[in-house]
């Protein structure tokens, strides 16, 4: 398990164990877990807590690493909070090879820079895309649907139409 000094906070959410570590020690924490048998990185993602008033968040971006021990089976979720523009965190692609694409996806969708990643480029969006779509301040986009609240003629009063 993760050694005591690295842990910032830990708890259980809906039956899943989680541990928060400092963003600088994410590699150490994951390496310790890997040594303990948590060899599969199930997924890696980010949550944008912009304007989330349900709780107090230490930073805007929360990186989530879900690890699994295939022998037990046992799961643990590791969180790290980061801020900054652009936010930076160390890459774990050499510890867990599946993280390679997951980190590229997280960069593509949230604009998080993974230090020492071999090929940090966009993976889902076109190479010339501007912005990071899954950030909360990025609009959903698409087109205004007729008869919806956003539609212009729907909002225009009859005398001005």
């Amino acid at each position: 398990m993760i050694s005591e000094p690295l842990i910032v906070e830990q708890g259980v959410s809906a039956g899943d164990h989680w541990v928060t570590v400092g963003s600088g020690s994410i590699r150490d924490a994951l390496a310790e877990l890997k040594k303990d048998g948590f060899t599969l990185l199930v997924f890696l993602t980010c949550v944008d807590h912009l304007a989330d008033s349900s709780r107090q968040w230490p930073a805007r971006y929360e990186l989530v690493y879900e690890l699994r021990n295939l022998e037990k089976p046992e799961q643990i979720r590791v969180r790290a909070f980061i801020d900054g523009d652009p936010p930076h965190i160390d890459s774990v692609h050499d510890l867990f090879p599946p993280a390679n694409w997951e980190e590229r996806e997280t960069y593509d969708m949230f604009g998080i820079i993974f230090n020492d990643h071999p090929d940090l480029s966009r993976i889902l969006m076109p190479d010339d895309w501007v912005g990071h779509p899954l950030r909360r301040d990025y609009p959903v986009g698409g087109e205004v649907v007729e008869f919806s609240e956003e539609h212009e003629t729907w909002q225009t009063p009859p005398e001005k139409a």
Partner: peptide, 24 residues
Amino acid sequence: PGDVYVAVESGRGENGCYVVSDGT
């Protein structure tokens, strides 16, 4: 509010869903 991860076995392997709620 909270977050949860559930995995199921699909025809291709592990298809999971990680959901974060802020209570809304």
